[in-house]
């Protein structure tokens, strides 16, 4: 039982929740705009690859983040054009993009680095971990919160920012209105298309950060299909939260914590496959609870 509240477990849970959190916050915007977005997966994977490229070529994780975000935005733009302007089915476009991103990043990996499968390269620079001056020395809390990767703190800041954008900015209000009643937005003289685009691009931006964390959050490596369903898990967090930032954040943290716990359990002899399976099973469980709760509340 100790392991449940072990500061190391909590710390690693926070860390593991970061990519899910970023992607889920992005997915929240598309959800609010009533766009069912399973392309989160491809946006993350695209960004993961290009942030490795950026990190390698410019020897800076920040360059990696920038390039990753740009790549993810481009992919988001493709999704937006096809689904918003051409009215293509969001699920078909999502699946095709996910398969396409998987293929394209694998090929580019081969073309640019001459390797297949995965890339371990000393040139890949991850984001550093940082200690927080005062918090560091607080017992327990310091062990959990301090000494995390820079991106972890960036994620926390982003979560707060997303809440503000969603509830206190013009854009946030308009995106939420759009998802619930496009006609209300249109008769207010606003372009639904524009805000649908904005929501998808915001999602691209945040999935860019999510993708960057995968290789540059400490691992310093890239492997084929590195996102491995994290985008789908993020989508589950989005559906659980149903457009409410606080709930989306909570769900992401729980997913990260569960993954950390499972990894810890591995140390107690739990078979590898069952450990790897747990986030997916947990996601289903969570979605079940979330939907039930919503039905009960009306």
């Amino acid at each position: 039982m100790e392991v449940l509240f072990d500061p190391a477990t909590l710390a690693s849970g926070i860390k593991l929740s970061v990519p899910i959190l970023f992607a889920a916050l992005g997915g929240m915007f598309t959800h609010q705009a009533n766009v069912f977005n399973i392309a989160l997966e491809s946006l993350m994977l695209t960004s993961a690859f290009f942030s490795v490229v950026g990190s390698c070529y410019f020897s800076s994780p920040w360059a990696g983040l920038m390039l990753g975000i740009v790549a993810s935005l481009v992919a988001a733009l493709v999704f937006a054009v096809l689904t918003v302007d051409f009215g293509a089915d969001v699920i078909v476009v999502g699946i095709a993009m996910n398969l396409g991103a998987w293929g394209a990043t694998s090929i580019l990996l081969e073309l640019m680095f001459g390797v297949r499968g995965f890339l371990l390269d000393p040139r890949i620079v991850s984001f550093p971990s940082v200690e927080i001056p005062v918090v560091k020395s607080v017992p327990y809390l310091g062990q959990v919160v301090s000494g995390q990767n820079v991106l972890v703190y960036l994620a926390a800041a982003t979560a707060v920012a997303v809440h503000f954008v969603s509830y206190h900015s013009k854009m946030g209000l308009r995106i939420r209105a759009l998802g619930q009643n496009p006609a209300a937005v249109e008769t207010a003289g606003l372009s639904p298309r524009r805000y649908r685009y904005l929501a998808i691009l915001l999602c691209g931006l945040l999935c860019g950060a999510a993708g960057t964390f995968l290789p540059l959050g400490g691992l310093s490596m890239f492997s084929e299909n590195m996102s491995a369903g994290k985008g789908y898990i993020a989508l589950a967090a989005v559906l659980f939260g149903n457009g409410v930032p606080g709930l989306v954040i909570a769900a992401s943290l729980v997913f990260g914590y569960a993954e950390a716990l499972a990894v810890k359990m591995q140390g107690f002899g739990l078979p590898n496959q069952l450990v790897l399976m747990s986030p997916y099973v947990l996601t289903m469980l969570f979605l079940f609870i979330g939907t039930r709760r919503r039905v009960a509340a009306g």
Binding site: F164, S169, K170, L173, R174, A188
Partner: peptide, 11 residues
């Protein structure tokens, strides 16, 4: 909605 009084994008 659409005519929000705002400062720097914030309502």
């Amino acid at each position: 909605l659409g005519f929000e009084p705002s400062r720097a994008g914030m309502i």
